[in-house]
Structure formats: structure tokens, C-alpha cells
Design a protein around this nucleic acid. Sequence first.
DNA 1: GTTAGTGTTGCGTTTTACGCAACACTACTC
DNA 2: GAGTAGTGTTGCGTAAAACGCAACACTAAC
Lengths: 309, 309
Amino acid sequence: MDLHRLGLISTRVQHFQLTARLGSIRAAARALNMTPSSVSRSIRALEDDLRAPLFERGGQQLRLSSAGEMLLYHLGQSTVELGRAVTGIADLRGLRRGTVTLVSIESAARGLLPRVLADFWARNPEIAVDVRVTSSADAASMVASGDADLALSFDQQSSRNLRRIAMAGLALGVLVPPGSRLTKITPGPALSDLSGERVILSDSSLTLGRSVEAAMGDAFVDFARRGRTNSIALMIELAELGLGTVMQTRLGAEREIAAGSLVFLPLHERRIGLRRLMLMARPKAELSEAATALSAALGQAVDALSPDE
Amino acid sequence: MDLHRLGLISTRVQHFQLTARLGSIRAAARALNMTPSSVSRSIRALEDDLRAPLFERGGQQLRLSSAGEMLLYHLGQSTVELGRAVTGIADLRGLRRGTVTLVSIESAARGLLPRVLADFWARNPEIAVDVRVTSSADAASMVASGDADLALSFDQQSSRNLRRIAMAGLALGVLVPPGSRLTKITPGPALSDLSGERVILSDSSLTLGRSVEAAMGDAFVDFARRGRTNSIALMIELAELGLGTVMQTRLGAEREIAAGSLVFLPLHERRIGLRRLMLMARPKAELSEAATALSAALGQAVDALSPDE
DNA sequence: GTTAGTGTTGCGTTTTACGCAACACTACTC
DNA sequence: GAGTAGTGTTGCGTAAAACGCAACACTAAC
């Protein structure tokens, strides 16, 4: 429980309390991972404004002055109250219940969503989250019609009943095994480099519509045995087995990328813009507190995905 | 007692408590002389970090949520403790006694010093301050030898027993009645403009030594009936009566300048540098708390005199 | 006198708080 | 339903506060 991090105590109070406890400005600075000059100034400023020295300087160990002892005592009482407040609020939050309905594209349902839910359920164990995996367009329309609270989808337009909460621009690229010749192209492969490759597209690429296909046409790219699938898991397995060059964002393949079984190479192609992963939600007034909380958590995770630019 | 101004409560706490009390973000912003966006963000950030809404939005009057009520209660308790601390420290400070010995040049003993002492004695009525007016050189040597705690002087060098606490660069110039022809010279008179003027120098100008006299010589300035005095009060009275052009800094003539009976014209002369008013003090360990407090107050006042550059 | 610790300070950089202006929303009135 | 007057919020740019760096002054121990 970091009261300063929560913004419940000031920087001066934090620095003073820690210095008093450790008996040393440098020790407090080390504990806070900052330089002693910052702690020194902070305490000095507090002394100036209180017009009372809080420590007796000289020698190698700071000693509290009478004023310092008095302040430390009252700050201790004050801090106990703040701790009670935070604990009490956490208890209130823990009582939160409800069900949130979420529709998601498959790529976000792997990696991103489980990670967010793990943390979310740690903090809100009583909230149920119903997840339906579907296409981007269907996800957006389900939220707009009230059949779902939240949606994770690519490239949807907000509307009267469909607010955009967060967005991340993700580069389109290819997923290949580490030995692929494409990994040797710098600064990254272009569409033309895909000639001769067996390219597999995700259905969700359709939402980029004409821009990808037009760019492919313009580049006179010859794709051998192109395939399409709506299964991200299948695509990733095919890529791992070297059975095709998968074209998508890195979303959904995080674990394989981290494990080194796949490499994600963003396409170095000006004509192809970013895929925009979006968290969409019902109008504010129509979201429960549980849905609002999940929305916040997901929004932060989506925002944290950027920048791919 | 502004706990936030003292740095004892954080900005978030201040904003939240005030908004809760007034029932409106805009009302709190008005009370704090800031824009509502700042208050709104501050509270929102606190809610995000606590992961609990503190207010129920909607309608035109904010209502505290359960979490907000709990936080407000505990913050109230916390704030009472802080108030006790500040009051207790002020009581400790009020018990402060002692005598401080100060030597000062006369120009600082008028205007500046009375002003600082007025405020200082309001806050420390039990501290006596013995003031001796003397020359800059004598003031410095009295502190060095231990005969005084503090000195206000021009252009002295610090040494082993003589610390420099604060300094202000003050331009040398002339004090003349408002109707003087010198007031019409822009950007300000040079030494050569003093030809034909009856110039009166302060003894303390001696400490600028050769730089002023050499500059005067170089400028081939013809001074009619030059005079010298060690009395700033006399010089100022002579200037007010139009009986001479007084050459000094603005220090000591603040009241006459403010009243409009004299005008201070900084000399536009590159060869003459700034006079450096300095607050000098005994070594830190040898200053009483009373002397340290006066030193701080005087130091702030000296620093506030700048910039004359 | 040297070494190893302390706290402090001038100055530049980074982060936080803030302001501006516009927006979205609600409640009330007509 | 339109207009008005209030509310809170947000994108973006600015100002102030907090911070880091590096050097300094000082103390204690050897």
C-alpha cells in the first residue's frame, strides 16, 4: 500500500517520514530509488514552510528535533487513518458483483484478454465475465444493439450506442518461423518480398478491405497457394509448422513470439496502414460498475499495446 | 493554515476534500482559483488509483459514493492530526528566544532591514535583534571575529568564519529629484552625463575601489564640487532638496522612491559593475536557532532584491 | 592527512499540475 | 422540441514542481 503512489500523501510527507525512520537522507533516497538531493530539498522546503527545523544536522546520523518528533507522531496518526481508508475502499470494491458480457475477436482473446482477466479477477473475484469470440463487425454490432457490454475488435466506427474507450495501432506483418528467409530482410519485408511465399490471411484482414488487396495488386505480388481462415489458433499452428506465411498483427501470437517459436516481422509497406484494435463499450450510463471496471482494465491494456508506428 | 501550501497534504487530497465539501468540481475550482479541468483530473486520477469511484456523476450535483464517504471521513481524521502537528510546531517556535547580533551598512538599515524585522518579530516576538550600523569592511570583520552573528554589507569576501548566505546584485546609479535633467536621458545616464553635476558619493562606494574611480577618470568626467559622506540619511535628504546628485544603489532610498520624491536612475555604464549586497554569517554550527531564523528571513529578502542586471 | 560516509547546492531535465477551449451531458424553461 | 444555464470531461500546450547529475562542504574514524 503505497500511499504516496495513490496520491494520498504528499512528496514532502513521504520523504520526511522515511528519512525520520531510516535516520538518513541518503538511506531514504536509496529506498525511494532517487538521489539524495531530491529528498534533501523536499525536507528543507517543508522546514522552511513550517519555519522549524525537523532534524538536527551535524554528525553522521540525523536526529529529529522536537518539532520533527512532534510532526512524525502526528503524521503517523494521520497515515494510519489513510491506511484505514484505502483498506475500507478495497473491501467495498471486493463486494462488487455482477456479470459483464464481452465479445472479442479471436486474436485478442488469446494473450491479451487472459492476461487482463487474470489480474482483473484477482482484484474482483466476484465479477463474472462472459466472453464470446466473434468477428470484428459482429462484435461491434452486438454492443451497439445491447447484446454485449464491451467489444474488442479491429477498425470499427463508434456511433450513438457504441463508444470507443481505447485504441491501439498495430502494424500488419508476417509471422514466420525463426529460420525463414524473410527474417533476413532489413528493415523488414515489403509486400513484394512475399513473392513465392505461401501466404495465409486472417479473415479479419478483410476489414482492412481494399487497402491491403489494392496494395497487394499494386505490388504485383504473386502469392503461391493463398489461404484464409477464421481461426487464429490454426494460423499460428500452421506458421509454427512452417506450412505458410501468416499475415496478421502480432496480437494473439505473443506467447509464441516470446517463446521464440515464431518471429513477427512488421511489413515495411507504406501503403498498408495500421490495424486499429479498439475497445468499444455501451453508453456510459448503461454500463454497470463491474463493466466499467473491466472497461478500465482492458482500456489500459489496449493503450499499453501501442506504439506500433 | 493551508496544509496543502505547507506540503502536508497532496493535491489530490486537497481537491477531493474541497469538492466533497462544496458538492461541485467547478465550485472547488473557483475556491482554489484554478480551472475545473485540473480538479476533475486530479479526482479522476485518485479514483483510478484507488479503483473506486468517489462520486456519483449525473445530474447537476455531485454525490459522494460509498467509497467517497469512507475516504472523506478518514481524510478528515487525518487532516485533524496534521492540523495538530502544525499548531504544535508553531507553539514550539513561539517558545524560541534569544538575541541576535547584526551589523549592517546604513543603506540596508533603512527600508530593507526594518521591513524584514517587522515580519520577523511578528512571528518571533521573543527574539531580540541588536543592530549596529557600520561600514561594509567593519561589518564583515565583526562577524569573522565572532563579535556579531550576521552582517549586511557590500562586496565582502567570504572566509573560514564568514559564510555568504545570500547576495543581490544592485546597479549603481544616481538619485535625483523628479525634475532633474538626468531623468530625460535614455536608456539612462552614463558617467559622462554627470558633467557639470554636483555629485555626492557614499563612503561605501569606496569598496568598489578602483573600478568606479578608474571609470570616472576614463570618462573624463568633470564633477563640480564633489562631496562624500558616510550618512545615507544625509545624502538622501540632500538629494531630495536638490543639493546634489547622489551616487549609490537604490538600497536605502526605497521609501523616497516609492513616494516619488526621488528618482533612481541606474547608470548606463558598462565599466561599472554591480554592487553586491551580501548577507554574511558565522559558521553554521555557531549560529543559534534564532540567528538561523533571522538569517533565513534576511536571506530571502536579499535574494528578492535581484535582479538588477 | 586520508578515507568514507553524510547533507547540500547550482544547474539542467523530466514529470506533474495546470490552463484554454471546446465538448458532452443534464435539468429546467418556454 | 429548442434554447439556456449549469455541470463534468478531454485534447493539447504551458508552467511549476520534482528530480538527477555532479560537485561541494562537512564530520568521524583511522
